[in-house]
């Protein structure tokens, strides 16, 4: 618990962390509002015969918010290596697995808090523009979890690579390039595979409230794919972190 307190203090005392948390909220609300607003004028002339998945649309902002969370996660470990502070950190908390668990928990708490604010603000803003159909509980919770998992993905990559820039590039590649590939590839089989097994489109099935039977992957298993990436890399990072000289 003490090492968690230390890691929380470490994050809280950096201005860049607060900027990134604010960016997560602003980007999510702004993109969500834009997405919902574009629908009102084009596809949904009246709320009654609107067949769009409005809840999913209002949470579209996750596509931008996740970038801020990724950077946040990367910085939480990357800055330790770039400044050399990792040695001070390890003299204070010599049990490396405990340190990594504390870091992951502190990061999850902060991104989780920002995620809750961002999701609630996105839904509230969307509701001002359009009525939302269906239950928002699963999409809302899932989106918050999604942001937390992306931050953990950043932490894992930074732990593995020990370099901020390299970890950000790998993370962005995983989140944005893989979904782009799905559009470039003409083979429907491969498109389907990527939509199911790439972390980002798969995880966002958690936001769907309509046509659940036609999703490439069901909501919770979809989020599970992202969780598998983040936690799998975290375990790999933990093993290497425990063995390497600091």
């Amino acid at each position: 618990m003490r090492s968690l307190h230390a890691e929380l203090t470490k994050l809280r005392t950096l201005p860049s962390i607060w900027w990134l948390l604010a960016a997560t909220v602003v980007l999510m609300v702004a993109l969500g509002a834009a997405a919902v607003d574009s629908v009102t004028s084009q596809a949904c002339l009246s709320p009654a015969d609107c067949h769009e998945d409005t809840v999913k649309l209002s949470l579209t902002g996750v596509w931008l918010g996740q970038a801020a969370c990724l950077v946040l996660g990367v910085l939480s470990m990357g800055a330790e290596y770039s400044t050399g502070m990792i040695r001070t950190t390890l003299t204070a908390v010599p049990i490396r697995r405990r340190l990594l668990v504390s870091k992951a928990t502190a990061l999850s708490l902060l991104t989780g808090a920002a995620g809750v604010v961002a999701v609630l603000a996105s839904l509230w803003t969307a509701r001002l523009i359009l009525p939302l159909h269906g239950s928002t509980l699963r999409p809302a919770t899932g989106t918050v979890l999604c942001l937390i998992l992306v931050a953990l993905l950043g932490l894992s990559l930074a732990t593995l690579l020990r370099d901020t820039a390299a970890a950000i590039i790998c993370g962005l590649g995983l989140l944005y390039i893989v979904p782009l590939l799905a559009d470039i590839l003409h083979s429907p089989t491969w498109q389907h595979r990527l939509e199911r097994w790439a972390p980002m489109p798969a995880a966002l099935s958690i936001q769907a409230t309509r046509n659940l039977d036609h999703l490439p992957i069901a909501p919770w298993p979809g989020l599970g794919v992202l969780a598998a990436y983040a936690l799998g890399l975290l375990v790999a990072g933990s093993v290497l972190f425990g063995r390497r000289d600091a």
Partner: peptide, 26 residues
């Protein structure tokens, strides 16, 4: 221990650097 005095995060206040260390040991 003092290993490398330059190992500080440039945008963290000196006092906060000691605060997180203090928190790690209650």
């Amino acid at each position: 221990a003092l290993l490398d005095a330059a190992a500080l995060h440039p945008s963290r206040r000196g006092r906060d650097h000691l605060r997180w260390l203090a928190h790690s040991h209650g």
